Simulated assay, not measured.
Amino acid sequence: MQISDNFDSGNIRVIDATSPDNIQLEIKHDNQSEFFQWFHFKLQADVSADNESVEHVIHLNNAGKAAYVEGWEDYQAVASYDRDHWFRVPTSYDGEKLTITLTPEYDSVYFAYFSPYSYERHQDLLHSAQLQLDCRLEVLGQTLDGRDMSLLKIGEEGEGKRVIWLTARQHPGETMAEWFIEGFIDRLLDEDDGVARALLNKAVFYVVPNMNPDGSVRGHLRTNAVGANLNREWLTPTMERSPEVYLVREKMLVTGVDMFLDIHGDEALPVNFLAGCEGVVAYDERHKALEDKFKEILLAITPEFQDERGYDKDEPGKANPTVGTNWVGNQFKCLAYTVEMPFKDNDLLPDYSVGWSDTRSSLLGRDFLTGIYHMVDELR
């Protein structure tokens, strides 16, 4: 038996792996940070005909000290034999340890906090998109680890056309965000989709599929290469600490913004929801009307969305200005929302095999295109 995390987005530390029924592991911290929760590792077992597979019991010993321990309640880890189809496996939490149990059917099995979105798949997404007539791939600059900060520009500027921005994976462990973006882009670039064609007649899109490529490859939950939480860097980003935000913000100041969606995942809440910028100084009745209409449209479009549960709204003038949605909403006086998806399941439409998944995230991204279509004329 062997356990490894020596691959893209891998994260685990082996304490004791001598006995299949009592495997002791720990999750590594984000570099230069107290955050940790994302895990991703490979278990090499032996399920040959001569050595029938046994139940493997895996303990993540430091789960009780993770960043969001409420995320472990009613949570089920994901596993995969082919790194394509991810399914939920029996998981329990006793307040200290997270315990995963599986009797492997094949020699090698991967486990993760959520369906991973690899850096190679990220590159495939960017470069397949650029082949489409309406899309350009731009590089804004480099991260601290020397990776590209990539931007997809979809559509062309024009008089009266709206400028719509989407960013994803400021927190790299929230991989459902890039699955969402993949579905969104796939539909937006579909020449046979009437909603997409109509939208590109009225708007130009700027999409950053991965705001934090360094943290993604390193196997981080929440921070970049030097431990910066990018979603607390928007007021005063620097090239030395948070070039990812600095470069995107500079581009926004050139293009302007009429609508902004920042795509995330929430550890604790088992639903999809939106978080607005109600507490920013520039927030007014127009802001509120736009927010209310967008939520009403989404409620009509998909049963995967709800507006009963979510974050508490900030009091007027009390919003944290370092958060991306708050900075953009205030700076450009535009409709700005954080989109949150669950790590667990959507308990309004539970799927006991896969929970909330990569596929469902992608489909929700496609649905949001319809929501934007019904909003685009009112954004300015």
Rank of each mutant, 00 (worst) to 15 (best):
V328K: 01
A336P: 04
A196I: 02
F87C: 09
D312I: 04
E159D: 13
E174K: 13
G329Q: 01
I154C: 04
P342S: 07
D292C: 02
S53F: 06
G194P: 03
G64P: 03
D94Y: 03
E26I: 10
S48Y: 00
N231H: 07
V339A: 03
L133D: 15
V226I: 11
I185Q: 03
L200W: 04
D82Q: 06
I15G: 07
A196T: 02
V354M: 14
V139H: 08
K333W: 05
R121G: 12
S361P: 05
S150R: 11
L221P: 10
E240S: 15
F273M: 01
V69Q: 07
I58C: 10
N330V: 11
E174S: 11
A228S: 13
L221D: 11
H59Y: 02
K295L: 03
T143E: 01
K42R: 11
S242E: 04
P316V: 06
E159S: 14
D145W: 09
K251G: 13
G227Y: 10
L199Y: 03
L363P: 12
M1W: 09
L199G: 00
Q2V: 14
I15E: 10
H264S: 05
H220N: 07
D367T: 12
T91S: 05
S80T: 09
P237Q: 02
I58F: 04
E157W: 06
N326P: 10
W38K: 00
V245P: 02
P172T: 03
D262C: 14
G310F: 01
L269E: 09
Q170G: 09
S9P: 08
T322Y: 15
R360P: 13
A319E: 00
L349E: 05
G227K: 12
T338W: 14
P350C: 05
D358R: 15
E156C: 04
R88D: 07
G194A: 08
A17Q: 05
G194Y: 09
N330E: 03
Y117M: 04
N346L: 00
Y106K: 15
R380M: 14
K161D: 01
Y68L: 12
D266N: 13
N6K: 12
T255Q: 00
K97H: 14
E340V: 09
E304K: 11
L274P: 08
